[in-house]
Design a protein around this nucleic acid. Structure first.
Lengths: 128, 128
DNA sequence: ATAAAAACAGGAATAATTACTGATTTTACG
DNA sequence: CGTAAAATCAGTAATTATTCCTGTTTTTAT
């Protein structure tokens, strides 16, 4: 892992993510940051999103549709995936995850370090 | 959804999956079914795996690494993903899912129809 | 001021998956 | 059985998200 130097592009990416309460894909970030940096490349967006995620400054959300999404909110929370429109959003529920408390346990010799849970269904907009 | 007709290729794909207790990718299935059907194409494997999954005859497993895996065992069970080698395997635990019981509930207008949970960490083989 | 390291833009490459096309199989029905 | 419509196939091209590569520009410690 290289020492990270400041970059204006990375700051802009972070700033954009901060303004969003949804979970933009790299391409959405790219489209938006382009207004401030017309010459920014998609590769730069990917590199910075991945770097920030690896540093734990943002969260990488993967719900199995083949597209990475990113979230400024790194606190542990659940997501809801609409099966019809594909939207991904926060799920405001206080249901404690069954999986908490599993961390550190070993099952069949496999050491559990974390878990992912997400819910899917039909979103409010698609139900109208 | 078209009416499904019998096909020898589909049967072979299903039969192969039945013999496996892990969760082969489309390419693994392709490599193996080729011994019985030397001219089978990868597209055929994908089409049939997706068809079988849509029919509920097999399960599609997505753990966010960009590769679809398939499982003959369609009963609800958890998976463990090794972060080091990428292996995906069943996790034998009787921890009841807290997420069960959420089905049918509506939160913020979003109707919950199901959920996905998987654990990640270091597998027994990588810990040696 | 300068030089090494990091980051960049632009574009090529990769990898998994899907879509297209004309030929082959399956199956319901006469 | 023969046949025709529909499903499926093999082979290949296209798509999509993402990563990698290269030569140039920024950042930063000294």
């Amino acid at each position: 892992m290289p020492v990270t130097k400041y970059s204006r592009q990375r700051e802009a990416i972070m700033d954009f993510l901060m303004t969003r309460r949804d979970h933009p894909t790299a391409d959405i970030v790219y489209q938006n940051v382009k207004s401030a940096f017309p010459h920014i490349s998609l590769g730069t967006v990917y590199r910075n999103l991945n770097l920030l995620a690896d540093l734990g400054r943002i969260a990488r959300i993967r719900v199995g549709d083949g597209v990475d999404r990113f979230d400024y909110n790194t606190t542990l929370h659940c997501h809801f995936v609409c099966r019809k429109c594909g939207r991904v959003m926060d799920l405001h529920t206080d249901v404690p995850s069954m999986a908490n408390g599993m961390e550190g346990r070993s099952i069949d010799g496999n050491l559990i370090e974390g878990h992912v849970t997400y819910f899917y269904g039909s979103c409010s907009r698609c139900l109208l």
